[in-house]
Amino acid sequence: MQMTTPQRVLAIVGGAFLLGSGQALISKPITLGPANLTTGTSGTKGDPNRIKQSTPPAEVPVVEPDPVDETTPTDAPALNGEPTTSFAAAIDSLLDKAVPAGTLTLRESRTVWEAGAYFLDARHEYEFDAGHIQYASYLEASLFDTDPDRAFAVADSIPKDATIVVYCVGGECDASKNTAALLEQLGYTDLRIMGAGYEDWVAAGFETETTDEMEVSP
């Protein structure tokens, strides 16, 4: 039997649909819906090592067992209250800049950061390497596909009930929502999204670091 071209086109698409349906049946389901987000700054449950680190201006860097989060606080002598003094007026508007509903403003993000919340960078790896919020870990949503071991290593280093703040460039970027949705599937309960984004964090002059500056323990 000869099929005409339109019939063959339909056959190709239909066959692909069947193959895709088969794949959908055997693979784990896709997460599309938005994650249940926590807002505000209350009830922050941060990284105990971070809190220890940032309270006294420690001369000796604390060696953390956590392989992802470690950094030395050497070039950040004044972790607390640094930006609230001289640039106060200029930064104030930035701190309270409107953000999408359900996400953290820059001020709130800063507060939970000081409380030791786990920060996750959902941008591309080269962007993370070039500079990210201090103590943040790289966890782009696609890392669960491209390098699951690495993604789960990051995820497993964070307690399930800890406060996690995910950020991306800022504005309407989707990346942090995607990462948060996947983390929710893994059982994390306190997920927050930094609506302000990395650009605002930099503009406010808050602490950043590049990957080269992070000290990774062997």
Binding site: A16, L19, Q23, I30, L32
Partner: peptide
């Protein structure tokens, strides 16, 4: 229309692959 995205995500790679 999440289901549209779901079906597209599963079908489109196969369409590309088969074609």
């Amino acid at each position: 229309h999440g289901y549209l995205i779901q079906s597209a995500a599963y079908t489109m790679p196969w369409v590309e692959m088969v074609a």
